[in-house]
């Protein structure tokens, strides 16, 4: 039983990172209607800047580097939108999605090109002390990660679902042209939203360390787990993204704990995605029927 509890706690801790990524993916989907497949690569790139440039080259204290990395992540988000995704959005889903794959490959490869195929020992901003909890230790770092998720999820939920800003985000996503006609500051809103998304990717990269050492592709794998949750919520729901991510984290942890075959957890996540698709299928059918009534 304690073993089970231990896995659950570890799974929840891991799920917080998935949740961070899922939140970023949903935010970007809400404004640009694209599944940003480059999200993980953005996070890794920013985190490598954190380790190699800000701490390594510049010798900044960890806390300062942490803040600076969030800015870099935000800048990456804005840059990716301005230079790559924004210009092709009007050409349809296919091109936009392909573009995010291009950016993913570009950033991943650029990381290797600049810093080599290493897995740097990323330091945490938070103390390494551990609190005993249900048979396993939960570190302050992990608690902090959970705190960030709560803060970000709450803040975004308020911003997107309860304010006029969120309404404008929805309007811009539906019809950017009409939003401009109405006089909405489309450019600014898109920029701010992608900046939030990019910063959340950087945050996920820096907090990833309690899962594993960070390599170039790590966060892209995390992105896959997060997509399960995002699919469940139709890429739209922030609460489902968070809860789903925690669920995937726990499932993953249990699978890894009880079945020793390497990679079995990956297989379970794939099955979970198939399940999520069936759920999504049902909800699409319902929404079609609702529309048909009018």
């Amino acid at each position: 039983m304690t073993r089970f509890l231990g896995y659950v706690v570890a799974g929840l801790a891991n799920g917080t990172i998935y949740a961070l990524v899922a939140l970023g993916v949903v935010v970007i989907y809400r404004i640009s209607r694209v599944v940003n497949l480059a999200h993980g690569a953005m996070g890794v790139f920013a985190t490598y800047c954190f380790f190699y440039v800000f701490i390594g080259d510049w010798g900044l204290p960890v806390a300062a580097a942490f803040v600076l990395t969030l800015v870099v992540g935000a800048g990456l988000g804005v840059g990716v939108e301005r230079a790559f995704v924004g210009p092709v959005r009007s050409r349809g889903t296919l091109h936009t999605l392909v573009m995010t794959v291009g950016v993913l490959l570009l950033l991943t490869e650029a990381t290797v090109q600049f810093w080599g195929p290493n897995t740097p020992p990323i330091p945490s901003v938070f103390p390494d002390t551990s609190i005993r909890f249900g048979g396993t230790g939960v570190s302050v770092h992990q608690f902090a990660a959970a705190g960030f998720v709560l803060l970000l999820a709450g803040g975004l939920f308020y911003l997107l679902n309860r304010t006029r800003y969120g309404t404008a985000v929805e309007a811009i996503a539906e019809d950017p042209g009409a939003a401009r006609i109405v006089g909405l500051p489309v450019r600014n809103i898109v920029t701010v939203t992608w900046a939030i998304g990019g910063a959340s990717a950087a945050l996920a990269g820096m907090l990833y360390i309690h899962l594993n050492t960070l390599d170039q592709i790590s966060l892209t794998f995390v992105l896959i787990y997060s997509l399960v949750a995002a699919v469940l919520g139709g890429f739209n729901s922030l609460p489902i993204a968070v809860l789903g991510s925690l669920g995937v984290g726990v499932t993953f942890s249990l699978a890894q704990g009880y079945v020793k075959t390497p990679g079995f957890a990956e297989f379970v996540v794939f099955l979970a995605l198939l399940g999520a698709l069936l759920v999504q299928q049902r909800s699409q059918q319902t929404s079609l029927e609702t529309v048909a009534e009018f």
Binding site: V35, L37, I224, L227, P262, F264, V269, F270, L273, Q281
Partner: peptide
Amino acid sequence: RLRGVYLTIVTLAFGAACQRY
């Protein structure tokens, strides 16, 4: 059978499951 980019996502997860499992 779904509207959206779900094939891309499911093939991505499939690729990951193949690579690691």
